[in-house]
Design a protein around this nucleic acid. Structure first.
Lengths: 150, 150
DNA sequence: TATTGTTATACTCTATAACTATA
DNA sequence: TATAGTTATAGAGTATAACAATA
């Protein structure tokens, strides 16, 4: 086998590297708010929903397993940013809603998020960033963890 | 503040998402080899070096803190893929070398690595992948964790 | 029988802090 | 005093498995 084009292989390594940077920067910026990156992501998802959101949908939106979503929402609920309530249509389900405190945090949160992302992606021009975003979108949605498949 | 361009902010989220995919796929492909993604990365780094490699240099190359490198190398050593030895120049230092077993594993490893990366990045054309790689390179090298700086 | 969310548990990756032995 | 690597500990993020309540 001739030395295959290494592009694909290298991508994975660089992703881990950049991903670590994001986590580091985010935790720095989010520390004053008291949230982790994953938690802030979840809060945004609930905030963007029009009404209360079911756990399953939150997990799907985050691309994680329901069990993992439980952990994240637990943290947000303990911080008083969301509340769990019953779903009137399906008594198995639980719906998550923003509290006033959660809503009031949104502005600070999105600023912190922006500062963290800017710190990491500053080396790229705005045009490059848009391009990168587009490339990532092509692959970002795929491969949610097991939800009903094998 | 008008609704700022969301590009930068979205990038961070997508990175986490894709990063998770990489970990999932890699662990699937690497399981038969018995290594995790981080471990296989470290093995590649040692393998690519011309001679034995010092722990500090390994940590730097991986972009992680020395303590984290210790953990990774421990796993590789337990698996018999590398060995630790003394550095003749500096008796504080420790050098890591490939074993025969480690060298023999390289081929299988790079194939597994390639399969994992291909699974994730398949939605992108080769040209897009090269472009993505170039964008990532601009940011990948920065911000190694604390090594002598602030 | 399938789905919703949970309790219980574990694993990967990485960090900080304190220590040992050199330099 | 500074550096190389370690032991000890912790935390973020996520997974699998087994179970309860409901559909």
């Amino acid at each position: 086998m001739p030395p295959v084009d290494e592009t694909t292989g290298q991508l994975a390594d660089l992703f881990l590297q950049v991903g670590r940077q994001i986590r580091v920067r985010s935790s720095t910026e989010l520390a004053p708010v008291g949230l982790t990156h994953a938690q802030s992501r979840a809060l945004r998802i609930v905030a963007r929903a029009e009404g209360p959101m079911r756990m399953t949908d939150i997990a799907d939106a985050l691309g994680i397993v329901p069990r993992a979503a439980t952990t994240v929402i637990d943290a947000l609920e303990e911080a008083g940013l969301v509340t769990r309530g019953a779903d009137s249509n399906d008594r198995r389900a639980i719906v998550v809603s923003m509290t006033g405190k959660g809503r009031r945090l949104r502005e600070r949160l999105s600023q912190a998020r922006l500062r963290a992302a800017e710190a990491v992606f500053a080396p790229l021009s705005p045009a490059d960033q848009r391009q990168l975003l587009q490339l990532l979108r092509s692959i970002g949605g795929e491969c949610a963890p097991q939800r009903g498949n094998t």
